[in-house]
Amino acid sequence: MEVPQDRQVIVLHFSIADWQAWAPGLTSHTDWQAWALDQRAVDNSDTTPDVSFLPAMQRRRLSPLARMSFCVGWPLAQAQGSLPLVFLSRHGETGRTAELLNQLAAQQPLSPTQFGLSVHNAIIGQWSILRGETAEMTALAGASDGFEQAFIEACLLLQQHPQVLLIVAEEAPAACYQPAIDDVPFSYALGLRLSRGEQFTLDWQAPSNDPSTAIAHPLSWLKHFLRSHTQWLHATPQRTWHWQQA
């Protein structure tokens, strides 16, 4: 991280050592490369992320959002030693929340498991328990530029660790939330193992009047990444983010 003397901005630098992504019907790098070129689409008949690397007794409490997160994160964390984790989800456990609220409305007692695991940091808690991971972990929820905020957090951790895991996951919203959530076209998770390096440069400027990206931002970012674009902008109401890829 550097703070240039001539302007009051911070510039982030990092590299991506490895990545994984999951959406219904899209699991391998090849699948996602084809998706990025608009040659392949989500297949909603295949909605179960594979977490069979965990014994049944360990995966039984994992929500769909947790399963997606583990599905992308687990292979990235294998054989890496201790790895700090930044978990980002704008909307979190909407499925569990809707179910709990429905039970409350029907004056039913709440499931202790559902209740206990509905909080935003439940997934990193389960990650810590199941992996025996004691490195720093944080769970973020950001609005339109939450993704970039997660990179700020991850780059701060990179000052003290050689690598940091970043997991972004969003679940297709329950019917009652659909009118209010317009940036989750389908359930997806993206895992990035970040390392120190110069592959990416990220900084930001005052907001512009450019229209924002057409699809959910982490997915839009993934397209830029996989198409090897050398630079692009992400305009939000608060600021415009400037991405560069070497």
Partner: peptide, 17 residues
Amino acid sequence: LGLDSVDALELGLAIQK
């Protein structure tokens, strides 16, 4: 079977229901 304290609460609720 390897159940834990959270399972005990959940099972208690299931039996109640």
